[in-house]
Amino acid sequence: MIHVAVQTDAIDVAAEIDRHDAGGHGASASFIGRVRGEDGLTELFLDHHPVLTEAGLAGLAHTAADRWGLAALTLIHRVGAMTPGETIVLVLASSPHRAEALAACEYLIDRLKTDVMLWKRETFADGRVRWVEPREGDQGRAERWD
């Protein structure tokens, strides 16, 4: 079962794991991305497209589920304003054995950094506000899966 969501509400990781695990899968891999409070960051804002962001996540989810024959996949991305320590993204991938679940999880986090319409804006305690620039390494990591 594939579950994809884009939400402004906090991601309830425990509840999502419970829901994902209802199928009783042999191997489950997870990735949790959180807001880092480096350099006095006070807010991270995620801009998104009302239609294409979720469509992009769903496309990646289906590609991963097919490629690795996943038994279940949960892919949730937070948007809007959040503070250090909050969860931005949650990936849960399950398969009968570990290799497929681990590979799918890594593929999804690599690809959603380059393929999905999401933009980060940082606000700092000293008043600075800046849009995050793509990292050089992210493109390379994403292309490994081509």
Partner: peptide
């Protein structure tokens, strides 16, 4: 049409 900078999610 949608126009935007390179994406930075994840």
């Amino acid at each position: 049409i949608a126009l935007f900078p390179p994406v930075t999610g994840g």
